[in-house]
Nucleic acid binder design. Structure first.
Lengths: 196, 196, 196, 196
DNA sequence: GATGAATGAGACTTCATTCAT
DNA sequence: GATGAATGAAGTCTCATTCAT
């Protein structure tokens, strides 16, 4: 009684499978060290099939970026904030959500940071995500604090990039969240001292 | 008092030339995208010579890391601080020196960050530099402020990684230092609010 | 009853073609002097294809040894002997068959002897073939003669290796079989003097 | 008080040292697998020096063949025979001397047989040695036996090549001479049955 | 849609050889 | 005579990409 996935459906799934396989592979070994054979194997298909769906290996990279973005989850986390709660509580919750999202999309993040230095288009993408992320948080925090908007931008930018950096270098290798939680708490407290 | 190491001297220079050429090439195109031909050309020698001095292309990577380290310049910048001056002044001066050093060793930095995500040994190296950098600055600042040492560590870690991040994503592409200077000033001011 | 293995069939043939091309090339120039380009050209394919079928150039060597062996034809020659005929007649026929087989598999033989001195695995292979060849002939001759089995083994070993040596150094360059035939006849006669 | 070896003397020794080093290296790894670096290292000199004494790597091969030959020791062994003793005794002694010589010049033998299949000039050399060896032994044995000269030639050729083969495949890897001695005794006995 | 055989450019590396010192 | 830095051709192997089936 299974829903007969139409041929088109099947094709979409294969394409999606390939994108995800490519993401995992790129994140693990980097773009150039990943071979199309690796990706095909990871996706459980044969070599040639990649070129039925994508023009080139690089095309797969863009397909990944088209499929995934961090911003969506950032928006979600911000939307979920409780207007009644304290800023400290909300920021802590936000950064915890951010860490969860980073962890969920770890492959994407790691790949993007790995490639950003050598691939201008990826770097532009990363920059845009950071900028938008900063702006979104800024829009949320600005009405609640007295700090000059320009300075607030710097503060937000700094705390946000510190977080991502901490995730990349430390948090993602940790077994549990104890340290991260403590780190977030401290960072938020310090951020509040700035913006108070 | 003999200067007639001319032959040996020449060899050392060639080796050094190769390391520097490799650094430039790796930083520009990444490790895997850099070919040994590229490197040889950049150094102005023929391909084969690389293997007279190094066991492999990867060996060149380690040779680069052996030759250069950021820590030396960090130490210098800290040593140059004026004990009589205000903390704000000193920190600003320190971060400006850091930015100058980052710019001078731009190739190394960019390469390290590019490779760190996929090369565990490079990542370990980057981590160590960050950790030591944080410790050095911590040792300088701790006696001058009242903040709990653990929290101070987080504050320093955050401000330092933010700086590096800012350099990587923004400052290194800027034509002049106006923006960076402003950014540093603001960041230092905010840091002081935390540690005060 | 399907013959539509055409695709797979084609692949098997290409692989086989590569093995044969490698055998010819190795036998003509030796293993190290043979380049993969040589082999590919001899097989009428492009370089890269070798690595679709084999892991390495050396792998081709083992594939050759897996595909071919002298022992089969030795067994055939022994099986074809006429129990009614005289030992002299049978031995002569056997060695003539051996020479024909050596000539047919000349490439293999020459390659094996060329590589045996420097490649222990090949030498082991050659030793095994000689040993088995001696044992097979011994099993056939032993019941027909009175010589002590140990001594018979030496006699058989000697006559057999002499034959192979003669083939390698002389017979394979001769235009016709006249000399070889005479040589075989004489050698058999002398062998009979020993075992009588 | 050391005898001042003149510069010329020194040069001759270096050259000789290089030839011997090349022989050892070629015999161990084969001609093509031996690099000039290997040889220089084995001789305890630097790379370039080879080309001060020899035109090319191949030139070293010819120098080896010029310096060494088996025939001299074969002649010696034959000359040492005792005209009063039995043929059996003399032949046994001769083959034992041959084995000793083969063992002493093992490197040369192994190298020659390894290269003979792919290098016509080496093969010619090997053929000549075998032919001359056969002729020398023939000249010694012929007056003492009644066998037809042509047949005697075959018998001698066979026993001699069997011996060399046995040495190459078996004797040279044995720790002691027990087996070889037994083998020689048996072979000689069988040879005598032929020529008696 | 899917397969995997086939291509060919190019990567890393080796090595015989030359030559300035 | 001796050194070893330097050259450059060539070899093994990889891999993105194509295409007949």
């Amino acid at each position: 009684m299974k829903t007969r996935t139409s041929r088109q459906q099947q094709a979409l799934e294969t394409k999606s499978k390939l994108i995800d396989a490519a993401l995992r592979t790129f994140s693990r070994k980097g773009f150039s060290e990943s071979t199309t054979k690796d990706i095909a194997k990871e996706a459980g298909v044969t070599d040639g099939l990649i070129y039925h769906y994508f023009q080139s290996k690089e095309d797969l990279l863009w397909a990944i970026l088209d499929k995934y973005t961090l911003l969506h989850s950032i928006r979600q986390a911000l939307a979920a904030m409780d207007k009644q709660a304290s800023l400290e509580h909300n920021l802590t919750a936000y950064f915890q959500a951010l860490f969860r999202n980073l962890r969920e999309q770890q492959d994407l993040i790691v790949m993007c940071f790995g490639e950003a230095q050598r691939n201008p288009e990826i770097r532009a993408r990363v920059e845009e995500i950071i900028r938008t992320g900063v702006e979104l948080l800024h829009a949320f925090v600005a009405p609640l604090v007295r700090l000059d908007p320009q300075e607030l931008l710097v503060a937000i930018r700094n705390v946000q990039t510190s977080m991502v950096f901490y995730f990349l270098m430390t948090a993602r290798f940790a077994d549990d969240d104890t340290q991260s939680t403590e780190y977030i708490r401290t960072s938020v407290k310090q951020f509040l001292k700035i913006v108070a």
